[in-house]
Amino acid sequence: MNRWLGALLLMLLGASPALADELRPVSIQFEQRDSHGWRVAWKQPLSSPADDRFAVPILPQGCRIVGEPLREMAALAVIGSAEVACSGDVAGGSVGWPRLTGQGDAILRIAPLGRSEQVYRLTAAEPTATIAVRPVAAQVWRSYFVIGVEHILAGWDHLLFVVALVLLVAQAWPVVKAATAFTVAHSLTLAAVTLGFAGLPQRPVEALIALSIVFLAVELAKGGRDTLARRLPWFVAFVFGLLHGFGFAGALHEIGLPEGQVPAALVSFNLGVEAGQLLVILGVLILRAALCRTAPMAEVPALRLATYAIGITSSFWLIERIAG
């Protein structure tokens, strides 16, 4: 158990700021212009400003790029586009990305004329997708649900917020209520941003998200004292959830939402986030209960160490994001 606790603490202390709120898959759009003409556009994340990789999506057989692909540099990403000529129907053909490795993934959107838009999540194990004649209705739901789960499990700042909330509240049902309030709040903000009713610059949002984790770490450091976060954890979670929703909106902006299926994508993404949160809550509660049962004297020092780890990590993110 002590080994598990040590691994958790090392994970928290080693959380890379660059991965704090990252949802940066490759984004590919394959859009039909007319009976034979298509356009492919893609956004390829880069690991650093010195990274000069430039890949081109895999296209169906019978399709070829016309002329040279256009290339434009953006912040830690390269944006490419090209006109494509296809002979015959592309249904049954494969579209994908040639350089998916490890945990990397891609979001592929295919927009044929007169047919429903198709959305696929590509992985290193399945780097291509087959264009369907008639896409399955649950396709968008499934893809964006998985994206939501992954964003909680791989988005360090949202993950640390949930972990800190669980450690602060400790009891299962109040934690679930607080996490649900967090989900409801960020769902409202995310929908408002997506539909154009609200918006904030991403840099201050990221700094404020880090500050929300610092706040919970400070509350944890106060021990058993009566505080607002301990009395009304659902209220604190709801208020900060509104803020975290702007972060989710920035992440979804990176991959885009399927035209005509935005509500389905938003709902399934939020359901995925809630499912991911419940997995994290369950894992932390089980770990803490096992620690209390096997080594009760270690609970207080372990909680203190976890508090310091969360506080140091989130403070570092806060300073880095303010400094730019």
Rank of each mutant, 00 (worst) to 15 (best):
T180C: 05
A106L: 11
L108V: 04
R121D: 09
G102M: 03
Q171F: 06
A154S: 12
G148H: 10
A138H: 10
A125Y: 00
D157M: 12
Q118D: 05
A181G: 10
G93H: 13
G96V: 06
A138W: 15
L113C: 08
P174G: 04
T183G: 07
L122R: 06
Q103S: 15
E117L: 12
F182L: 11
A172C: 14
T123H: 12
L100A: 09
E117W: 07
P127C: 10
A154D: 01
P98Y: 13
R142P: 00
G148S: 08
L167H: 08
D157L: 08
G114R: 06
I152Y: 00
G92F: 14
V149C: 03
V136L: 14
A170E: 09
K177N: 09
A111L: 12
Q139C: 02
S143L: 02
L108M: 05
V175T: 14
A111R: 14
A154K: 10
R134M: 00
V133S: 03
G114Y: 07
V149T: 01
V95W: 08
F161D: 03
L160N: 05
L165R: 08
I110S: 05
R142M: 05
R115D: 06
A132F: 14
F182I: 01
R99V: 04
V146H: 03
V133K: 13
A124R: 09
K177A: 15
V119N: 00
L168T: 00
V162N: 08
V169F: 08
A124I: 02
S143V: 15
L165N: 09
T123C: 06
H158K: 13
L113I: 11
A132E: 15
I152L: 14
A164V: 06
E117R: 13
A125M: 07
P174N: 12
L167V: 08
V166E: 05
E150Y: 02
A178E: 08
K177R: 15
W97G: 00
V149G: 00
L113D: 03
A179T: 14
I110T: 01
V133N: 06
Q139N: 01
V166S: 09
E126T: 15
E126I: 11
R121I: 10
G148Y: 07
L113G: 02
P127T: 11
W173M: 06
V140C: 06
A154T: 13
E117Q: 15
H151K: 08
V175K: 02
I152P: 00
L100D: 03
T130F: 01
V133W: 07
F161V: 05
Q118G: 11
L122Y: 10
I131P: 01
L108A: 06
T101R: 15
Q171C: 04
A106C: 11
L168A: 02
A129I: 02
A181Y: 03
I107R: 11
L100G: 11
A106G: 06
